[in-house]
Design a protein around this nucleic acid. Structure first.
Lengths: 226, 226
DNA sequence: GTCTATATTACGATAGAC
DNA sequence: GTCTATCGTAATATAGAC
């Protein structure tokens, strides 16, 4: 069992890409990091384990082994397991909501705004993959989980509004209700968390751009040739 | 806290619809049931709780409260939590694999076979909703979960084969790889477990038939009007 | 078949030394 | 900031009475 050594040390090379700049707010200074965990860098490890084992299936013991520090050391950085979940889902939700404020999502023909939101949601999902993955698996057992679920429902409702507009414009097929269409659309997009892996992109499967293109093309024009 | 009383008794009226016929194999005899649990009727309760709280988030205590019997009584019917998971996922997988043996899935033009499998998978998912829901959320922490994941991958691969055939026939859009198309297709279908509720069908959202129609139309022709 | 009581292990979190 | 040791609780599962 050498599992606890893999990617364990806070300064181990294979975690650099995922490591945030320490307390320094500037993202242009990734160098001056101390050889210790911050809540942010600990979150990176925790979210990975949460996604591997499931949130409920992950114990603090699992986290401590994965992070390479003791259980009690984790409590020095965060108040507990639930705070890690809140930070992770919050990050995912912030990324998603930001899409709705983009100019392309607020101006122009509704169906084009829907298409923009579709593409950008796919992109944000790929960019923030571990955080969105965790968000999409939340069940609602704790207050934090219910808070995340509620924010997610708000996001969905905003998009339903867009689909309704596009339907009123006559730009969406009339035999599918906008609410149902939104659910199928997000079903397709969100399923990326089940198989998309950035490290495999371009080899075992398509690159991020190709995936986004495929999602938009499939969702709006369908799989069948005409 | 009256939660443990809701739908608790094995013979309570609100569980009748979900209750299987006892040892009698004939489904035309729902009457002659004894006022006690069978592994099958216990499974109905357990799967509902698993889906509400997540498998890892469900303790035997939770199950005993929901079933209205003690923890130790559960062990009289099944060997443990994992056996319940295996029975549930096995049932879901059997339903899915049966689709691939249907005549419409083995004869005719590939693209039509894909469309048939799409519709039938949607229908089986709605008919066996709790079991398929549980299957789709399995993570792989135990041997049983890995067994279920492997069978599920087999099913996916069978469908990828169908999509490849259809693509070779020139019936599928050429700018989306068959493997990717299969993933997006199943992403859309499988997302039903997140929102489809049989009791709400026809009121809060579309009926089962309408949902199946919408899935097929969206997946093959797309959301946008042409 | 069901129960109460309990064995045993694992869990989240804390105390206090270094 | 990290550690070892430990507390109190909750988990899975079993023993044995009825």
């Amino acid at each position: 069992m050498t599992e606890h050594l893999r990617g364990a040390s806070p300064s181990s090379p294979d975690t650099i890409g995922a490591m945030p700049a320490a307390s320094s707010a500037s993202p242009a200074q990734p160098s001056a990091r101390r050889d210790t965990y911050t809540p942010e860098s600990l979150l990176t490890v925790a979210v990975r384990v949460f996604n591997e084992r499931g949130y409920d299936g992950t114990s603090m013991e699992h986290l401590s082994k994965a992070a390479g520090i003791s259980k009690s050391s984790i409590y020095h950085h965060v108040r507990g397991k639930e705070e890690l979940l809140r930070r992770a889902t919050g990050r995912a939700l912030d990324g998603l909501f930001a899409i709705l404020d983009e100019p392309e999502a607020t101006r122009g023909r509704a169906v084009d705004r829907v298409e923009h939101v579709t593409r950008r949601t796919t992109e944000v999902l790929m960019a923030e993959l571990p955080y969105v993955t965790l968000l999409l698996r939340v069940r609602g057992n704790t207050a934090t989980e219910r808070w995340a679920l509620e924010r997610r429902r708000d996001f969905d409702q905003r998009v339903v509004g867009l689909l309704k507009e596009a339907a009123d414009d006559g730009d969406l097929r009339s035999d599918v209700d906008p609410r149902l269409a939104t659910r199928l659309l997000f079903g397709m997009i969100n399923s990326l968390v089940e198989w998309y892996r950035p490290d495999r992109a371009g080899t075992a499967h398509a690159t991020g751009d190709e995936v986004a293109d495929a999602v938009v093309a499939t969702a709006f024009a369908g799989l069948r040739t005409t």
